[in-house]
Simulated scan of single mutants.
Amino acid sequence: MSYQPNAPYLVPQPAGPALPLPQRGEPDTAQGAPVPIGAVVMGREAQQAAELQQAAELAQRYELLERLGAPTAANEEFDELARDMAERAGFRYGFVNLFLEEQTFVGLHQPPADSGYVIVGRTMRLDHGWCPDVMVRKKALPLHDVHASPRFSGNPVVDAVGIRSYFGAPLIHDSGVVLGTVCVIDPEERSLGQAREIRDITINTGAQVMKIIARAPGR
C-alpha cells in the first residue's frame, strides 16, 4: 500500500473555488442587532484562552507520543485495526485518528476507489467531524443518525461525504492525555437497537490502539 500522510481530506478535490466554512460557535452577525463592544472583548479573551489551552494540549500529545515512540503517520497496524473495526461494525469507513496540527488518520479503512463512494485523505481540519466532540466529552459518542439532533446535524462532513451515522471513542492515555479517537462513519443511518453493539466495538478498538501505543519501541 502507498501511504500519503499529508493527502487532502477529500480526494479528488471539488472543482471551482472553495467556499469558506463556518467555524463552530461562530456567531452570525450579518443580521440582527450589533454586538456590544464588551461582549466582543470578552469573546476575544475567551477565544485566546481556548487557543492557549489547545496549544498546551497539543504539546502534551506530541511529548507523550514522542516519549512512547508511537507512530504519527500512516501505519499498517492501525490500518488493519481500522479495517477490522469497520467490518465488525458493518460500516464503510473506519479511522484511527490522532489530533495533531490536523486530525491525522494514522489508521484508515474506506471503500475501493472505484466504488462510487467518496474517497478521503489522511488529514482533516480540527473543527470538522464529530471527533472533536469525543475529545471534549472524553467518552464514546454514538450517533445512529446524525440528523436526529440539530447539534450534530450541522457539520461539513455531512455534506462533503454524505454521512448519516457516526460512532467514536476517545484514545486516553493512563496519564489522562487524550491523544485522539477511533471512529466509524457511514452514509446510512443505523437503528437504535444496533447502537450499543457498535459503540462497544469502537471502545474495544480504542483499547487495542492504546495497547499498541503503550508497547511502542520508545517506551
Score class of each variant (00 low, 15 high):
N204R: 14
E80L: 09
T205M: 06
D114I: 01
C183L: 06
D200H: 14
Q53G: 11
I37P: 09
R67V: 12
E188R: 12
L52P: 04
Q4V: 10
A7E: 13
S153I: 11
P156L: 01
V184A: 01
T72G: 04
L126E: 02
Q4T: 12
R196M: 04
S165D: 08
N155T: 03
A207T: 11
V136S: 04
G121L: 01
E76S: 15
E197H: 02
V136E: 04
G94C: 14
L171D: 10
A55G: 12
G69F: 08
L64W: 03
Y62L: 15
A15H: 07
G94A: 07
P217S: 09
E189M: 10
I37L: 15
L19Q: 09
E101T: 00
C183R: 03
C131S: 14
R88S: 07
I37Y: 15
E101G: 00
P112D: 13
G38E: 15
A56V: 07
V11L: 15
L19T: 11
D159N: 09
P170A: 04
R137N: 15
T123W: 02
Y166W: 01
R122H: 10
E51M: 02
G32W: 13
E45W: 06
L65F: 07
A160Q: 14
F167Q: 00
D114W: 04
E26V: 04
